[in-house]
């Protein structure tokens, strides 16, 4: 808590042109809200001047109204943490990349691109990472519709409870072990 507030003061002094706010919810941690277009500048400053040398986590969040990206930075020598967050519109989500600052951000951003459809400006190799290349849609968005088939493999499977229903025809078939033993005896 105090880490974030202290870092907010330091950042506001160093980068006076960028509007930064400390936000928090009813429970949990607080974070610094950064305008999306300035995120690379802010993180660059934290990385080079404040010694936040470790990107612990980068994640996308879909709240239903907007997309958010949360950055969790850490300084290994000082053992401090700083959480940053940006908000993006759902239809045109474009963010400057931070893959030149942290090596690991490369894959983290690819994952957010794959699962949320956020476009990272300046990323060297932005392509799908989890899903196949010909996959449609971005699965972790709230309005994502689950596919009914992929490459001819249907996603349907009958509910076993239906099969247990006495009125269901399939139950009339003989149980498997009996028919097996019959085959065995005739051969």
């Amino acid at each position: 808590m105090s880490d974030v507030k202290r870092m907010h003061e330091t950042l506001s002094r160093a980068l006076p042109d960028i509007p930064l706010e400390v936000e928090s919810a009813q429970a949990g941690m607080s974070w610094i809200h950064v305008p999306a277009e300035h995120i690379a500048a802010v993180i660059g400053h934290l990385r080079h001047t404040e010694g936040f040398d470790y990107l612990a986590c980068l994640t996308g969040i879909d709240t239903g109204e907007e997309l958010q990206i949360a950055y969790t930075l850490r300084s290994l020598p000082d053992k401090t943490e700083c959480a940053l967050k940006i908000s993006l519109p759902r239809d045109e989500a474009v963010v400057p990349t931070i893959s030149h600052l942290y090596g690991v951000a490369d894959w983290f951003e690819r994952e957010v691109f794959d699962l949320y459809g956020v476009h990272f400006d300046g990323h060297p190799d932005l392509r799908r990472i989890m899903m196949p290349d010909d996959w449609e849609g971005h699965p972790l968005r709230k309005d994502y519709v689950f596919p009914s088939e992929y490459h001819g493999i249907s996603a349907e499977r009958p509910d076993p409870h239906d099969l247990l229903d006495p009125e269901y025809e399939a139950c009339a078939v003989d149980p498997a072990p009996k028919s097996d033993s019959k085959e065995g005896s005739t051969s």
Binding site: M130, P139, I153, A155, R157
Partner: peptide, 10 residues
């Protein structure tokens, strides 16, 4: 959304 529902489909 990404798991095949039983390998007997393949």
């Amino acid at each position: 959304y990404s798991v095949v529902k039983g390998v007997d489909k393949i």
